[in-house]
């Protein structure tokens, strides 16, 4: 690690002020991505603005047609939350499948979504469920949020405060874990809202993406058989020692069918 300062603001206003004071400040949430990055000297912030003591940044609120999760809510809390388990079971399952107990008790939804790791699980839920990312400046649709590898629509210094997930009629999430990291080698979220179906794929490409061909097919008939092989071309997918792009393309189809089966119970 390089040297850095640390600030512990307690309100969102203080966060802004602390960030303004810092030469090159960076938010610290659960630290499950940022701390390893610092340890490897891959980042050199002048100050860390810890979000842990900020009032009102944590918690889960269930409404009639949506569930709102504050940015600092830990993965373990999402996995165990009764409202989420009954209304959006695939979301609880997704959170419960992240990393290990240590990671789930430290890592936060805000940190994960802001980081937008191409292999992270949450982006599939945010995009697959068409959630709204709420920041200290504005509200951003999932479809406009994830802009590229480790890249989002967040402005410099913009803080995610909560994420609001609409409650679907049916939902499934299947993750094929990377054998080394157990992040998603490929993860597919399928969600049905009345006449619309959303399919989001993480792990397979540089950034989470939707699959309109599958969404159309599933809108016509919400059954695993609707998903034909080869709907996602391999060309633009990730290719690494863990999986070729062809294999990832194949897995997208298999996992999507299984996600539909899960959604159908």
């Amino acid at each position: 690690m390089y040297d850095f300062g640390i600030k512990n603001p307690t309100s969102i206003d203080d966060v802004k002020a602390a960030l303004g004071d810092a030469e090159d400040g960076q938010f610290l949430a659960g630290g499950q991505t940022l701390i390893p990055v610092l340890k490897q000297r891959l980042a050199m912030p002048s100050d860390l603005i810890s979000l842990s003591r900020v009032d009102g940044l944590s918690g889960i609120t269930a409404g009639g047609d949506s569930i709102s999760i504050k940015a600092m809510t830990r993965h373990a809390e999402v996995a165990a939350n009764a409202d989420i388990k009954s209304a959006i079971p695939a979301l609880a399952k997704l959170a419960g499948g992240i990393g290990d107990p240590h990671v789930r008790n430290r890592g936060t939804i805000g940190g994960s979504v802001a980081n937008n790791d191409p292999a992270a699980d949450y982006p599939a839920a945010v995009l697959g469920l068409g959630a709204t990312v709420i920041t200290n400046e504005r509200e951003i649709d999932a479809d406009n949020f994830f802009t590229g590898m480790f890249d989002t629509a967040l402005n410099e210094g913009e803080l995610i405060t909560e994420i609001s997930f609409p409650i679907p009629e049916a939902v499934g999430y299947i993750k094929f874990p990377n054998p080394a990291t157990r992040y998603a080698l490929v993860g597919v979220m399928v969600a049905k809202f009345g006449n619309t179906v959303r399919v989001a794929v993480t792990g397979a490409g540089p950034c989470v993406f939707r699959v309109p061909e599958m969404e159309q097919a599933l809108t016509a008939s919400f059954s695993p058989d609707s998903i034909k092989d080869g709907l996602v071309p391999a060309d633009d997918l990730n290719n690494d020692i863990h999986a070729s792009r062809e294999y990832r393309a194949h897995l997208i189809g298999v996992l999507a069918r299984r996600a539909v089966a899960e959604a159908n119970g």
Partner: peptide, 11 residues
């Protein structure tokens, strides 16, 4: 060495 960490070397 591509498998230079536990992120790439599967145990």
């Amino acid at each position: 060495l591509v498998t230079g960490s536990l992120m790439d070397y599967a145990l």
